[in-house]
Structure formats: structure tokens, C-alpha cells
Nucleic acid binder design. Structure first.
Length: 399
DNA sequence: CAAAGTTTTTGCACCACACTAAGCT
DNA sequence: CTAGCTTAGTGTGGTGCAAAAACTT
């Protein structure tokens, strides 16, 4: 097929790293992801055995292949005779597991013939995979996630730890909401995007526990621009109140409420839109809807001293933390969302959207992988062999 | 309220080199 | 038409610095 590891370009890729958007062989996977604590947190999953370019999220038991959303859709769509094939979700992992340990995560997993025991595996012994994570969770173990009954996943991510401190109280309140919380603790699956036989609605919601990098807005917008337009249309049509099921949407000092409500409502949108974008659909598309809504509301009126909405976007799902009280909180007594405010907000949103087009995005995962491990002096790349003051692969510096 | 001073935020250039794409043989 | 080669241009991330913005006096 001609597909090779994005890093070494030699071995057949086996796993897909969402954070790096890279297909890697086991050896490089361990090398790259043992480089530092952050890379170790990258959640990876098997590579789709059909297209060899997307992360697999289900395993077809009958066909014994791991499939991405798209290939699964193509192969198991309702119109095909294979639609009744039994499939099981494929979990993600982080850390630096050995092939044997991967086999314990995925019973069907077999080490490719070409991929021998890597030096990384031999030398580093960095296996840090947490049994619970491997079997039940998406991503880093430090994520504490709960869900409310609208399907909002609230992540307690390191990414927003700073902001969380300022919003800590409201976040805590949100997390502690007795009425809304189902106390569902951690989501269980990593990547199922649509409803499948055997996957519950809860499983669907689990999608919202996303890797922060996957929440790159341009990426979603690029793939699923229509969903954004949809959200925008709702705004412009004044559909916010009806969308949220309340006519008293808070205005001032309540961006958080609005965002949270939009959050929950977006889930509905997702379900409605999903089939239309199935060709390229992925879990990302779900977050596209979610974050787009967040984008608008958080961008609407930044509080003094707060970071910009863009910062929230950078943190992806963790932006949810900043939303303060959940939608089921009684609306405040302030004026409702007037049409003038809405128009103004839409204008700001469109402006923001325009500028966002120019934001940086990683186009070549292999280059990113190289840059990630390249030695630097004061942030600048140095020639191989030259003295350096920063080596991403080494916890200590040369000086 | 305006001006001056201070602090914070934002944007960008820099670096090496693997990789891509285009052009040519 | 395809394959192989050459070459120019691109993109990648961490850091430092300058400019702009925000804030205080």
C-alpha cells in the first residue's frame, strides 16, 4: 500500500497519535512518546487498517479489522450487508507500553512482523500505562471528568489549571452540581463517533472527553465548516433561547451560562448533523459543534483580566470549565439577550472567525515530530552536533 | 479627564533541516 | 507516459525582543 511510519518512514504504521496527527510504527511511537512527560500523555489508538490514515475506533469482530469512523461507515453502513457485524470499541492508551501490554489492552492486537522490539522498549522501560486508563479511559490519567445530564463533559485538565484557579469556585460548583451530575466519573471509550450497536448514548457522550490538541478549531472548521455555519445561523436567527429551552437567557455576567447551555444544545445538533458529514466524520466533528458554540459565547464579551476566547479555544474541551454555572441554574435577573446584543455578538464572532483562519496549524506531522525533538539554543534550532541548551529528549540540559 | 509611567499581552523573527513540489532528463 | 534526479521553497517549535495594549498613578 505504500504507507509508512510518519516518523521513520520505514516501518509500517500501527498506531495513530491524535495529538501529533501522525501514523507511527510501534518503535517510533515509543520513541516519540517517551521523549517527555507531555508527549507521554498523548493518547494513541490503533490505525485504521483500511485507509491507514485515520485513527481506528472500532474493531469489526467478523472481519477482524480495526476501522476508523469513515471506513466503518463505508463498510458497515445501514445499506450494506455488513451492517450487522459485531463491532467493539477500541480504547486509547498513553504512556509507552510494550507490544505485550498493548496486547493486553487490545486482545486482538498482534505485533506486526516488521516491528521488532524497539530500542525504546528495551532501554527506556517507560511503560507507564495505567490499567484503568488502558481499559477504560481516554487520555491522560490526570483528567478528572464528570458529566451532567446534558451530556456535557467537564474536564479538569492541566491545560486550564491557571484559569481554573480564577474560575475555581464556579468550576467546583459545576462539578459538584448534585442535581445535574450523574456521577459518571470517567468516560469509558475513546473514539466512537456515532451510535453503533452496542454503544450506548453514554458512550456517545464520552466522545467529549477529547485530547486537547484535537480540539483545534480550524481543523474542525476546515472539515466541518457547515456545522459552524449552522451554529451561526442559529445565532443570527435568534434561536438561542429556543435552542436552550429557556426564554430568559442571561446576558451580562453570564457568558458562562450561555456557553454551557449552548454546549448541551450542541449535542443535539451533533446528532442531527452527523449523518450529513459522515464521510469525514470523526469524533472531532462532535467537538466542532461544541467548541464553535463555546467560541461564540466566550468571545462575546471577555471579562477584564480574563484571557481571550482564543485562549479558551486553545484549551479545547477544558474551556468548558470556564463556563461557570451549568444551564440548569436559574437564570439571573438581568436583561435578556437583546437583538442588538446578538447582532453585535454575531459581528464580533464573524470577525474572530476571520482572524482565526490565519492561526497556525500543523500541516505536516512529520515535521512537527522532528521539530519536537530538535535541539535548540534559546529557542532556535542548532546544527546537529553543536552545543545546545535545550534538548526536548533529555530532562537535563547540556549546560 | 488627560498625561505620564508601568505592567501585561501580543506578534514575530530567528534558527536547521527534513520534506514537498515542481521542473527537468 | 513513467521513473529518477535536482533544486528551490516550506514548515516545524521555543525563545527573546519589540511594539501595542491595558492599567495605574
Amino acid at each position: 500500500m505504500g504507507y509508512n511510519c510518519d516518523f521513520c518512514g520505514d516501518q509500517r504504521p500501527v498506531v495513530y497519535c491524535r495529538s501529533d496527527a501522525a501514523c507511527l510504527c510501534l518503535s517510533c511511537d515509543r520513541n516519540v512518546h517517551s521523549a517527555n512527560a507531555l508527549s507521554k500523555r498523548h493518547s494513541r489508538t490503533l490505525l485504521c487498517e483500511r485507509c491507514n490514515s485515520q485513527p481506528a475506533f472500532v474493531r469489526c469482530v467478523e472481519e477482524r479489522v480495526s476501522l476508523c469512523q469513515n471506513c466503518d461507515w463505508m463498510g458497515h453502513g445501514t445499506s450494506t450487508s455488513n451492517s450487522r457485524h459485531k463491532r467493539q470499541a477500541i480504547n486509547c492508551y498513553s504512556g509507552c507500553p510494550s507490544s505485550a501490554e498493548l496486547s493486553s489492552i487490545w486482545p486482538f492486537f498482534q505485533q506486526p512482523p516488521s516491528a521488532g522490539e524497539s530500542s525504546c522498549e528495551r532501554e527506556l522501560g517507560l511503560m507507564s500505562i495505567n490499567e484503568n486508563i488502558a481499559s477504560t479511559s481516554w487520555g491522560p490519567m490526570e483528567n478528572n471528568i464528570s458529566q451532567d445530564n446534558t451530556g456535557i463533559a467537564i474536564t479538569n485538565d492541566t491545560c486550564n489549571s491557571d484559569k481554573e484557579s480564577s474560575m475555581g469556585e464556579s468550576s467546583a460548583r459545576l462539578l459538584d452540581q448534585p442535581s445535574g451530575s450523574k456521577d459518571t466519573s470517567l468516560p469509558k471509550l475513546c473514539c466512537p463517533q456515532t451510535k453503533y450497536p452496542g454503544l450506548s448514548e453514554d458512550d456517545l457522550y464520552d466522545d467529549f472527553n477529547m485530547d486537547e490538541v484535537d480540539l483545534n478549531l480550524e481543523k474542525y472548521e476546515e472539515l466541518f465548516g457547515m456545522t459552524l455555519n449552522h451554529s451561526e445561523e442559529l445565532l443570527e436567527n435568534g434561536g438561542i433561547a429556543s435552542l436552550f429551552g429557556t426564554k430568559d437567557m442571561p446576558a451580562a455576567d453570564s457568558d458562562c451560562h450561555v456557553a454551557a447551555a449552548a454546549e448541551g444544545s450542541s449535542v443535539g445538533l451533533v446528532n442531527a448533523i452527523q449523518p450529513a458529514c459522515s464521510n469525514a466524520a470523526s469524533a472531532d466533528s462532535m467537538m466542532s459543534n461544541k467548541t464553535d458554540s463555546i467560541l461564540y459565547f466566550t468571545a462575546r464579551r471577555p471579562h477584564p483580566g480574563e484571557s481571550s476566547a482564543g485562549d479558551y479555544q486553545d484549551c479545547g474541551a477544558s474551556s468548558m470549565l470556564l463556563m461557570g454555572e451549568p444551564p440548569w441554574c436559574p437564570p439571573c435577573t438581568e436583561t435578556s439577550f437583546t437583538s442588538a446584543t446578538r447582532t453585535d455578538a454575531v459581528m464580533r464572532y464573524k470577525e474572530k472567525k476571520k482572524t482565526r483562519m490565519f492561526e497556525k496549524r500543523v500541516r505536516y506531522a512529520s515535521r512537527k515530530a522532528r521539530a519536537d525533538v530538535r535541539k535548540r539554543v534559546k529557542g532556535r534550532f542548532v546544527k546537529a552536533g553543536d552545543a545546545y541548551d535545550y534538548d526536548p529528549l533529555s530532562p537535563t540540559r547540556s549546560f
